[in-house]
Design a protein around this nucleic acid. Structure first.
Lengths: 205, 205
DNA sequence: ATCTTTCCGTACCGATTGGTACGAATAAGG
DNA sequence: CCTTATTCGTACCAATCGGTACGGAAAGAT
């Protein structure tokens, strides 16, 4: 959908680097709340005129959506990789806890969760992507838990669907707290506590 | 601080009803995200001119702060009452779960938690109040847990401070999900799961 | 050289934001 | 009556928002 590769034939050569603009946008959405980052600000940060940006992305909605796609491919993919790693229940949960509470990339929060939290402020394209990603995440969590249950690794009470949603929200909560400057050690402690419901005895200091 | 009662002496009699304006403001902040409610909108809803509102509250910050105070006295007090009820661990946790997942007043979320989530968008007065209230809530949770521990009602592992923060955040998460239209039954299920860490065996259907 | 095509960015648009200048309105005191 | 005090609301302000009209610049085609 993004005008990545346009034929370089006749007219004035294009100087706008869409990928660089997206890098700037992702960085901006990452550091601040996406709702607080204006198109003007991104143009200034990227050293690009506003019409150029609109020519490349159509609208603010198009830009945020493209930025979310970049972020998804660059960061969220790692989370999906953790869930599909095929390791056991607790190694995977530990990896999730590490990611949420210690990964330096989550120091200022997660673009996706920030967008999800302010869903009503997004344009239709971006909102649709957010919902797709949320569904995909939920599916990945559910598949992971289903596998753990079938392998006898998890014998807990709650149904898979509810547990998947629970897992998703707890990770989101941890990362959101990360964005608000909470002490990572505290976050690890709380997330560990929240996820301890997945095994009878799971104490962490 | 709010100009509640001014002497009715000389000049033109005041027609602005500050309490009614605050009622309107609280209702607006309650239904939508406070960051999405403009002063203009509140003036229109309350049938009040903008200068009148600014005369009464000084600034948008003053208005949101006053509205938060009203909300606090009217709603948050109930949560503090639950925590200070002196009942046991689980009756109190059940009451919190009921409040978060079933109380009709939380159907569109909690003004306080909405403001806390968008803290950076608030003026200094309102932000200070939010932080005060957050500290007060944390203290109330901690006091409650300390009492439960001393009475032998709670023998869990995590230290009181961490558990208080955990409780606070889990309730906040539940209410926030409430605001985003999640099924209350699902929320109850998840919050129950999250709080089940406070007792060895606490299954709820 | 001229035409055509494509992209560039200045300079604008209307809408909305929080906030206010200022004169009319309405009371009491003299 | 006139003055003084207080509140009223119309009509404005500058800043910012997302978005665009438009003329110039830079290339290939003829």
């Amino acid at each position: 959908m993004t005008d990545t590769e346009s034929r370089a034939g006749r007219g004035r050569p294009r100087t706008l680097d869409a990928e660089q603009v997206l890098d700037v946008a992702v960085a901006a959405y990452w550091k601040d709340d996406p709702a607080d980052v204006s198109v003007n600000a991104i143009c200034q940060l990227a050293g690009v005129s506003k019409p150029s940006l609109y020519r490349a992305f159509g609208s603010e909605d198009g830009l945020t959506r493209a930025a979310l796609d970049v972020y998804s491919a660059r960061v969220l993919s790692d989370v999906f990789a953790i869930l599909q790693g095929g390791r056991g229940l607790w190694p995977t949960l530990e990896a999730l806890i590490d990611f949420a509470s210690a990964d330096p990339r989550m120091e200022t929060g997660c673009v996706f969760y920030k967008m999800r939290a302010g869903k009503h402020r997004l344009g239709p394209l971006t909102r649709a992507r957010v919902e797709e990603l949320d569904q995909a995440a939920l599916g990945a969590y559910a598949a992971f838990l289903r596998a753990c249950r079938e392998s006898g690794d998890w014998t807990g009470g709650p149904p898979v669907e509810a547990a998947a949603k629970y897992l998703n929200e707890q990770v989101a909560l941890a990362i959101t707290q990360r964005a608000s400057g909470e002490d990572p050690a505290r976050i690890r402690e709380m997330l560990g506590l929240a996820l301890s419901v997945f095994s009878g005895a799971a104490d962490r200091s």
